[in-house]
């Protein structure tokens, strides 16, 4: 058998990938589900309908929605600013946006503890206003926003860069205002990349552990998101509970993956449709 034989290469590569995924993903996931149902369906239902478990799900959804909402606005603005204008410090800004991807989430958490915690200069003002950030929901939202903020802008920036400024300039010359230009010219172009960014951002926000862990204070029924709650259960040797809640998180992640694939498929279909017409 020659190594150049494309069929052999193809099946070898597929085989390696499949084996890798089996060991790294399928096996653990199966084990999660297996453990979750080890004490029967009742045990699973009891674990996921537990008061604290439900609150963790609720908090995760709320935090995710808020973080995604903030990052949608932030991501669009940044991408717009970085691609449509030239200004001093543009490169620096562009680099800083990527910081959450490179810095450890623990450090992200600590940054906020230092900024808003007891030792911070801001603390007296915040406590005067009865605003509690550390060990409270706002802190968790902040941490999640920080960790997920590159996702949306990073998806949009390449698309905007490839598009150039001509169409926007043309629209501006015809008297269009900034909002109309965005709505009618820019957004149709970045729609799919934007939605893809939202999906990635959502997935990351749901699963964030490190930064949230530092800021949350692990208060059951108050500041525990799903990943934190799972950890607590696990540390308490409640394997059924931990894996039951884990399986919920996995199902949510799978739903997001499906959403992602649907989006990808659609954008491809739209692209092909336009091409075919041309």
């Amino acid at each position: 058998m020659k190594i150049e034989d494309p069929k052999a290469v193809k099946w070898t590569l597929i085989g390696i990938t499949a084996a890798f995924l089996a060991v790294m993903l399928v096996l653990p996931l199966t084990y999660v589900l297996f453990t979750a149902f080890r004490s029967g369906l009742e045990g699973f239902v009891a674990a996921v309908t537990d008061k604290y478990a439900l609150h963790a799900v609720y908090l995760t959804v709320i935090v995710t929605l808020m973080a995604v909402a903030v990052n949608v606005v932030f991501g669009l603005y940044t991408a717009w600013a970085l691609t449509k204008f030239s200004f001093r410090g543009k490169k620096l800004l562009s680099t800083i946006i990527d910081l959450p991807l490179t810095v450890s989430p623990i450090i992200a958490g600590l940054i906020f503890v230092l900024t808003f915690g007891r030792q911070s200069v801001l603390y007296p003002y915040l406590s005067d206003l009865h605003i509690k950030i550390i060990f409270a929901v706002p802190g968790i939202v902040l941490a999640t926003v920080f960790v997920t903020f590159p996702f949306i802008s990073r998806e949009i920036i390449p698309v905007l860069n490839a598009q150039g400024k001509d169409e926007e300039e043309a629209a501006a010359l015809m008297g269009a205002g900034a909002f109309r230009i965005f709505r009618q010219i820019t957004f149709p172009h970045i729609k799919w990349a934007f939605m893809y960014g939202v999906v990635l951002c959502t997935a990351r926000a749901m699963g964030e552990f490190g930064a949230v862990s530092v800021l949350s204070g692990h208060l059951r029924g108050k500041t525990n998101t799903m990943p934190l709650y799972i950890e607590i259960l696990y540390q308490g040797y409640d394997f059924t509970g931990a894996f039951a809640v884990s399986s919920l998180l996995v199902v949510m992640a799978i739903l997001i993956l499906i959403a992602r694939n649907v989006l990808e498929h659609r954008s491809k279909a739209q692209y092909l449709k336009n091409r075919r017409k041309a």
Binding site: A170, A171, H189
Partner: peptide, 11 residues
């Protein structure tokens, strides 16, 4: 204004 690239709104 007519742009070199025409800058037609592609959507």
């Amino acid at each position: 204004f007519v742009f070199q690239s025409y800058a037609l709104f592609r959507y």
